[in-house]
Design a protein around this nucleic acid. Sequence first.
DNA 1: AAAAAAC
Length: 452
Amino acid sequence: MDATTFHDLKLTTPLYNALDDLGFTHPTPIQAEAFNVVASGADVVGIAQTGTGKTFAYMLPILRGLKYSEQANPRVLIMVPTRELVVQVVDEIEKLAKYINVRVLGVYGGVNINAQKRAVAEGLDIIVATPGRLYDLAVSRVLQLKSIQKLVIDEVDVMLDLGFRHQLINIFDILPERRQNIMFSATMTEDVDALITDFFIAPKRVSIALSGTPLENISQTKYAVPNYYTKLNLLKTLLQDRDTYNKVLIFVAFKKMADRLFEALEQDFRDELCVIHSNKTQNYRLRSIEQFREGTNRILVATDVMARGLDIDNVSHVINFDTPNFPENYMHRIGRTGRAERKGAALLFYTPSETEALEKIEALMQMVIPVNSLPDTVTIATELLEEERPKILERNNPIKLRDEDKPGPAYHEKKAKNTKENLGGSYKFKIAAKYKKPKTRGDKNYNKRRKK
DNA sequence: AAAAAAC
C-alpha cells in the first residue's frame, strides 16, 4: 500500500518537523514501500535506482525506532563504497535527525585517524563508514561493534567486488549475529543473491520499477567519433557553450586518463575545471567536489569514484568521455544528473573499439540511445595524430613489467593467490603502486616527491 | 586497459 504523504507513515513529530524543514511532503516510491518492511525488523533487500531517496528510505524507519540511549557503542552501522558518500549520508542523516537526540559519526580512510578515535570514544549511536577504516577502528578496539542492531549496506553490488568483498566478510565476522540486515543495490547480481542466501534470514524484497525513476528526466544521446582526439575536439567544442553546459560532469575510465584530460582542457578552461580520483589526497577530493557543487568550477573530470549515489544539484550534463565497460556504471554515472525531478542530459562518446561496450549498455537500458551528429565545427583528427600514437602510448605506459608480472598464466595464478591471501588489494595494484610516480597536483605524496 | 577501499 503506497502512502501518499509522510503523514500516512506514522512518523514521530521530530521526523515530521525535520521533513517539513526540508520541504518534503511526499515519500518517494522506495520510501513508501520500504518503510513498513524496514520498520518490521526483517532483513530487507532493496532494489532501487540512484536518486530515489534511498537514504531516507531506511533512515526514516530506523530513526523512528531508535530509542534514546546513553551507551557509548553504536547501534546502527551504515556502509558505503566511497568516502564522499560517507560525508553525504552523514549530512542527510543529520538533517533528518535534526530534532532527535542521536549521535552520528562518519569514518573513512585518507584522513587522520586520531580525531575519529576521539569521536568514537565520546560515544555514538549511528556510524557511517567505508569498510577499511571501519575495520581498522574495530580491530584496534577503539570501536566496539557488539551493540550493532542494524546493518545497512548501500551499493552492495560494488561492495561485493573483488577487493571489497573480503573486507565486508571480515566485518560480518565481528558483528553480532542477531541483527537486522538492510541492503540496497541498483541491480540484482549473482553475487548479491549469494550474499543474501548466506547472511539473510527470510529476507523481504522491496523494489521499484524502472519506469517512473529519475532516469526518465534524463535525455540521452551518443556521438560516434573515430578516435580519442576527435573526442577531445568534440568535448572542447561543446564546453565552449558556457550557458548550456553550465555544470558538466565528465567521466573517464582511468585515473591516468582523468589527469590527462584535465591537462588537455587546462589551456581553454583553466579556472572552470576540477578533477577527482582516488590517487588524489582526501583534501583535494573534497575540495574538488565542493568547487563543483558550489559552481565555482563548472567542469569536473572524474573516474567512477563519482559514479554512484552522490547528490549534486543541477548537474546540467553528464558526459561519458569513455564508454564504460561495465554497463551498470553507465546507469550510475548518468544518474548524477536529472535529480530531484529536474531535467538533465547525458552524452556518450564512443569510438569503433567501444561499440561492444555500447551494445551492453543499450541492452541494459533496454533502449537504443539516439545518435547525435558531430557539430560541423568539430575537427576530425586523422593520420597526423596517428604518428604521435607510439609516443603517447609510451608516455602512458611507463610501467615496465617483468615477465612474471605480465598477464599470462603465471600472472593470473599469482594474482589469484595474492588476492586470496591478502586483505585489500590485488597483486596488479601492488605492481602498479611500486612503479607509480605520483606527479599531478593533488596526488598523494606529490609534495614529498617534489622536495627531493 | 577498472575503480574503490587501511595504515
